Amino acid sequence: MAAESDAIVLDDSVLDDIFFSPVCTKCMHLHFTADMKHTCDAFPDGIPEEIWKGDNDHTKPYSGDNGLLFEVVE
């Protein structure tokens, strides 16, 4: 058994950021950037966390969305 000082501690804080959005990944307006910033035509300054994490499917107007809604990539 490992001593407490030898224990492995995982830093799960990096898991707070979702790499692939259940909503945005399927949207034609999403921008893929080298710096992994979540942006799109509707939210050029950053996609709201509520939408990125899938709590809002952005099929209805959302404040600041520039009049653009979710559209499936074809």
Rank of each mutant, 00 (worst) to 15 (best):
L15Q: 06
T25A: 15
G64E: 03
P61M: 11
M36N: 07
D57H: 09
S13I: 10
D6I: 12
P22E: 05
T33F: 02
T33H: 06
D11A: 08
M1D: 14
C27Q: 01
V73S: 04
M1P: 13
K26D: 08
C40A: 03
V72G: 12
A34M: 12
V23P: 07
F19E: 15
M1Y: 11
S5D: 12
F43G: 00
G64W: 04
A2Q: 07
D11L: 07
V14D: 13
N56G: 09
L68N: 00
C27P: 04
I8G: 09
L15I: 08
I18S: 06
E71L: 11
L30D: 00
S5G: 11
G54W: 05
D17K: 11
H58E: 09
S5T: 14
I8Y: 15
D35N: 08
E71W: 01
D55H: 15
S5F: 12
D57K: 07
S13N: 11
W52R: 10
T33V: 13
D57T: 07
Y62E: 12
F32K: 09
I51N: 01
S63V: 13
G64S: 07
G54Y: 04
A2R: 07
F70D: 02
I18V: 10
V23G: 08
L30Q: 05
I47Q: 02
L68K: 06
G54T: 04
H31P: 01
I8P: 03
Y62N: 06
C27L: 02
T33C: 13
D55F: 13
P61G: 05
D11K: 11
L10V: 10
E71T: 05
L68C: 01
F43K: 00
G54K: 05
D16V: 08
D41P: 00
V72W: 11
E71I: 03
A3E: 10
L15P: 05
N56K: 15
P22V: 04
G46P: 05
H58V: 09
M36R: 12
F20T: 13
V73T: 08
V14S: 14
D6R: 12
G64V: 03
V23D: 04
T59H: 06
K26E: 07
E49A: 12
S21Q: 07
T25P: 06
N66K: 08
G67W: 04
S13T: 14
I47Y: 02
G46A: 04
K60L: 11
D6C: 08
S5M: 12
V14E: 15
L68I: 06
E74N: 10
I18T: 10
I18A: 10
D55S: 15
P22Q: 08
E74D: 12
E49H: 07
E50N: 07
D65T: 00
D45I: 03
L10E: 09
D41Y: 01
I51T: 05
V9Y: 14
P48S: 05
I8L: 14
V14Y: 14
H38T: 04
L68S: 00
C24R: 02
I51A: 01
D17F: 11
L30K: 00
D41F: 01
E4Q: 15
E71Y: 05
N66F: 00
F70Y: 15
A3H: 12
H29K: 03
V23K: 06
H29Q: 02
C27S: 04
